[in-house]
Amino acid sequence: MIIKINGKYYKIKKIEKNPNGKYTITTENGKKYEFKNVKIFSEEELK
């Protein structure tokens, strides 16, 4: 799965839903981001 952050695309390693309704997304390079609204892309959609 792929996520778009600030115009760049990252591969997703893990998605966790937090009790506060936000999502914590861990990218393949180990960085964590927290979002309220998340749009996930499949690799097929990006081709």
Rank of each mutant, 00 (worst) to 15 (best):
M1Y: 14
M1T: 06
I2H: 12
I2P: 01
I2L: 15
I3E: 00
K4W: 14
K4N: 10
K4I: 15
K4M: 14
K4D: 04
K4E: 13
K4A: 10
I5Y: 06
I5K: 02
I5M: 05
N6G: 14
N6Q: 10
N6T: 03
N6Y: 11
N6I: 03
Y9V: 06
Y9R: 04
Y10V: 10
K11M: 06
I12E: 00
K13M: 13
I15E: 00
I15T: 01
I15Q: 01
I15G: 00
E16M: 06
E16T: 10
E16I: 09
E16Y: 07
K17A: 07
K17L: 14
K17W: 09
K17I: 13
N18F: 06
N18W: 08
N18K: 12
P19T: 14
P19L: 10
P19I: 11
N20A: 06
N20I: 03
N20W: 05
N20S: 08
N20R: 07
N20V: 03
N20P: 04
G21L: 02
G21Q: 02
G21S: 02
G21A: 02
Y23N: 01
Y23R: 01
Y23A: 01
Y23M: 06
Y23E: 00
T24W: 08
I25S: 00
I25D: 00
I25L: 04
I25P: 00
T26G: 00
T26L: 07
T27F: 15
T27M: 15
T27A: 09
E28M: 14
N29W: 06
G30H: 02
G30R: 01
K31W: 10
K31R: 12
K31V: 10
K32M: 13
K32N: 05
Y33H: 04
Y33M: 05
Y33E: 00
Y33S: 01
E34D: 05
E34W: 10
E34C: 12
E34Y: 14
F35Y: 08
F35S: 05
F35C: 15
K36R: 12
K36Q: 11
K36M: 11
K36P: 09
N37R: 10
N37L: 07
N37I: 11
N37K: 12
V38I: 14
V38G: 10
V38D: 05
K39S: 10
K39N: 09
K39E: 15
I40K: 04
I40N: 05
I40M: 09
F41I: 12
S42H: 10
S42C: 15
S42D: 09
S42W: 14
E43C: 15
E43L: 03
E44L: 10
E44K: 06
E45R: 04
E45T: 10
E45N: 09
E45P: 07
L46I: 13
L46S: 07
K47Q: 14
K47M: 10
K47C: 15
K47S: 12
